[in-house]
Write a protein that binds this DNA or RNA. Sequence first.
DNA 1: GCCGTTTTCGGCCCGACTGTTTTCAGTCG
Length: 571
Amino acid sequence: MKNKEIAKVLYDMGELLELKGENRFKIIAYGKAARAIESLKEDFEQVCKEKRLESVPGVGKAIAQKVEEYLRTGKLQVYEDLVAQTPQGLAELLNVSGLGPKTISLLHEKLNVNNMEDLEKAAREHRIRRLPRMGPTSEKNIVKSIERYKKRSTRISLDVAEPVVEEIVGYLQGIEGLEHITPAGSYRRGKETVGDIDILATSTRPGDVISAFVRMPMVEEVLGKGPTKASIIVKETIQVDLRIVEHRSYGTVLQYFTGSKDHNVKLRQIALGQGYSLSEYSLKRIRDGVDLFFDREEDIYKTLRMQYIPPEMREDTGEIEAAMEGRLPNLIELSDIKGDLHVHSSWSDGRDSIEEMARAARKLGYEYIALSDHSPAIGIAGGLTPEQLDKKIEAISALNDELKGFTVLVGAEVDIRADGELDYPDDLLAKCDVVVASVHMAQQQKERTITGRLITAIENKNVDIIAHPTGRIIGQRDPYEVDMHSVLAAAARAGTAMEINAYPTRLDLNDVWSRTAKDMGVRLAINTDAHQAGQLKVMRYGIRVARRAWLEKKDVLNTFGLRELRAALEK
DNA sequence: GCCGTTTTCGGCCCGACTGTTTTCAGTCG
């Protein structure tokens, strides 16, 4: 599929046009088309062949023509021309916070700034302050922004963001006058990583809350501070924005700052169509200019004649249309989970004993847990030999006699070896209640090879679940090359489930593929891959992904009670 | 550049904050 590649060209076009000072709506149009193509489930090349390009919302005549040219000739002339006209390092400057296209063009024209290095030099040599509407403070801010940009790592994973959010919320809750406080933005939508953190609050004494916020011990820098909002930097690069709003507008503000941007734009369009102008302060009735205030989010959606849309779904991927037609799914919740089918014990590379894992799981209210330790191919993880696995089966049987109302299932995380064979023989796998298969080795193989390995495992009648199906580790390792469409099609045919690995740096399958899996008739399992009892609690991150994928209770294997689960595991 | 249950032309979401200049353009979310 070339969808990503095409999207990249369009994104780049947008940036280049922005630097050129093009009409901003044109730039938005390019970004919109790029996002639409990127998130399209069909192969865009196929769509092009069938002359259906313009059926994709956001793609009109002009962009369709450009994509067609790109697919036919392998390049796009207007794009090549723009690239040739624009100094190479200029687009990167858009990443410097505080700098936009206008300022960059000005710097380029007047000071011959062509890249980050030129920019930093110009600022340090105080040449920027001589430009119109620039001054010493602008110079200082540019230097600071460049430093932060250089230090900046990738986006923040949820397990890093969560303690920061909790600390700040906890701190501000102690300030007098504070009423409500809640994180918003992509954190509230449960994205797998967040760019920055948004917090909203209502208070009878907003000034006091803002002052307390910018003076917290953890604050490393204050980016801005006004009567109703402030921005700070913590932990070197994490930006946290706080907004204080009037109580009567809390619903509209929460809705607005939860986003996503695309969701909000669509919602505001819908509002206009119904005679309202939606802002973060109110829903203004256009015919008489009367402001309707909402302190609850639910009532905004209701007034706009649609179902309440849970934050995780707000990405403008069809949720608004579904809500208007009253056909939103009833999303899965953490309390629906009845067990964990992929955890490790001290028999392989886990820290805790089977009994400790089982007791911790029972405490979470689960009915069962599958101890899926590694197979021998993973030498470094203490994979079990077939003899050891037999012993483990006996140990589990003895333990089950002791545990009342809770069941330990015999599991295995069997490796899909480089040659495509499973790391245990079939007769041994048949003795396990739950078989989780996964790729750990030879991840650099070609797409066709890895796809073939996965499909072979999927088609094995003993394999129940494919664990962390793309192998990516957020911020560390890219997914291996795999044709996920073919993999999911095979899983649908064979009745093998795909895992959403709840570990916060895996979260794999991701939201987009999990939703595709559901649409293709594939069942999902949400497992923690816990290596110690405390990690069983990361289940909540997996649930966020599942909710973003529109999954319901019935789509997820480990929401089933034990009897139902056993039946489902019979292929 | 895209789009149409008020439009095939004229819109395109809306407001806060900053740094500068003294009324606002640019940027951000």
